[in-house]
Amino acid sequence: MISSTSEKILSIEDLHASVEDQEILHGVNLVVKEGEIHAIMGRNGSGKSTLSKVIAGHPSYKVLSGSIQFKGTDIIELAPEERARIGIFLGFQYPVEIPGVSNLEFLRVATNSRRKELLQSELDTFEFEDLVKERLKIVEMDPAFLERSVNEGFSGGEKKRNEILQMALLEPVISILDETDSGLDIDALRIVASGINKLSQPNSATILITHYQRLLNEITPDFVHIMADGKIIKTGNKELAIELEKTGYDLIDTDTKDKKMAK
């Protein structure tokens, strides 16, 4: 269980960020500690995906003010690859296809860049194949996917499994999974969710960005945050997600209206 002495992994303070000169995040505050699972819910356009991309360092998104600390160090100046190497992982909502680049080779280069950071030996092709075959089991993926180009021609479910496979290989400290459940059928959802559960460690943490309670039936969050208009407007426990599922986002609408009226 989480104790109050657990180390802070991620600490976001009053984060304002924009894309294409339009401010999307209007002051996000979030603290994630070791062993925690957080869920961020909210409508389309509320800023959930933007938050995940800002944490991962997407070059199109600019931080206007505020801070993002990873284990006490500000990461805003770090390149995306540097963030990845220290253990920040973003599972994409729409993983891109990269024609001509072998999935196996991609996974190996990525894994080695993380291993290098952890001062572990880099794996050659043969050693890596052993590792990847073992990790494939976590997401019940067919080894044939390794021979294909990265995500090319993969179904929605296969792409998401490939994301979780990357998570399994990179062994991140914090995983931000952006709508990993979208577009998955029940079976695929269960496989992906069980993969995420198997991969959670006492010294790592997970942020699930989702629209639906159904993922949270499989992975129990410690905290549920609701985002609206570029801010976290409500935080609760798993009950909040259940409540949200029942009443819909009207719950937040009334809340925000109240606040706006108060202004």
């Binding site: 991962a56 360092g57 997407h58 070059p59 199109s60 390149a79 995306p80 690859e81 963030r83 990845a84 190497r85 992982f89 973003l90 994409f92 993983p95 891109v96 990269i98 024609p99 001509g100 680049v101 991609f106 280069v109 990525a110 860049s113 993380r114 950071e117 180009s149 990357q166 990179l170």
Partner: peptide
Amino acid sequence: SEDQLFYLQSRGIDFEESVSMLISGFCS
């Protein structure tokens, strides 16, 4: 594509190596 580049980078691969991977992929 910026998204392809970001995807590779977000997995810890150098910007430079990412570009070269994309070009090799394009030429494969």
